[in-house]
């Protein structure tokens, strides 16, 4: 199911690459600080980052529900907006997975193939392409629970999963552990789905809410102050649940921690 990004990009010096910034619709509208953090972070590494103003949505809400017909136009627009970049980086695991894995329904022109193979989620871009060793500008003296989304885990493989027998790794943890004074706490069910699942969270609301509250309690049990994730969509759902339940948990994106803000 995973489509691994091309290895060709890794040979290139970062400052020769034209990077397209992919900001998912809900980050644009609800969590702009995540977009700002992502842009500022990439710029710190000397990257030439552009933001296509006409981007809208990767098409996932429709595509995930099987509605390819209504997803197609948004998907084509995505290709149009990003085809001119060497690589595309987005602070969203599920949206990036959509482009890499599920744009297979589009006619596979050179442009489509190029965009699919060169779209990265932020954590994998920092870890695999830029191979960042330190974040000297960042500090985060708080206890943190990491939430890697199912898309990032099983679609993009940014960390090992409990189901597959392999040597453990976690790219999100590797990056976050380079931040001064951060304390990452273990959790009981690190890769059990939080229950967001896109439209699932409203069409299967009771089940989704149970999954979400279980996740929140797990974080509280381990003393997390913050829940940090490469995927704000999951956090939007978890945050809603935690607020309703009166739980004292704060939810931020990994870009914000690695960039040192904005919060």
């Amino acid at each position: 199911m995973t489509t691994q990004p091309t290895r060709a990009i890794r040979g290139r010096a970062p400052n020769t690459m034209k990077v397209g910034l992919f900001i998912p619709c809900y980050i644009d509208l609800i969590y702009p600080e995540v977009g700002i953090a992502t842009l500022q972070l990439l710029e710190r590494f000397g990257l030439d980052v552009g933001f296509p103003l006409n981007q809208t949505c990767c098409g996932q809400p429709m595509s995930n529900s099987g509605d390819e017909k209504n997803a197609a136009a948004a998907e084509h627009l995505f290709i149009e907006n990003f085809k001119g970049y060497d690589c595309i980086v987005g602070p969203a695991g599920s949206c990036v997975k959509q482009v890499r894995c599920h744009y297979d329904r589009l006619e596979q022109t050179e442009e489509v193939k190029h965009v699919r193979q060169h779209t990265y989620e932020l954590v994998e871009f920092l870890h695999d392409v830029l191979k960042v060793e330190s974040f000297p500008w960042a500090e985060f003296p708080h206890s943190v629970a990491i939430h890697n989304s199912c898309s990032s885990l099983r679609g993009l493989r940014i960390a090992s999963t409990s189901e597959i027998m392999e040597a453990p790794f976690d790219k999100t943890l590797t990056l976050l552990s380079k931040v001064k004074d951060i304390v990452v706490v273990p959790v009981d069910r690190p890769d059990d789905c939080c229950g967001f699942g896109g439209t699932f969270c409203v069409t299967d609301e009771a089940v989704s809410a149970r999954m979400g509250i279980e996740k929140a309690h797990d974080h509280v049990r381990h003393g997390a102050e913050y829940v940090v994730s490469p995927d704000m969509s999951c956090l939007m759902h978890q945050q809603g649940i935690a607020r309703r339940a009166g739980l004292d948990l704060k939810y931020i994106h990994v870009a914000q921690v690695l960039n040192g803000g904005p919060y």
């Binding site: 609800i30 969590y31 609301e205 939007m236 809603g240």
Partner: peptide, 19 residues
């Protein structure tokens, strides 16, 4: 959404506007 969750609020300034 509202049965078990609080609603998220759109930001005063979107990322696009900030950019």
């Amino acid at each position: 959404w509202i049965r078990d969750r609080e609603l998220p609020r759109p930001a005063k300034q979107s990322f696009r506007e900030w950019y």
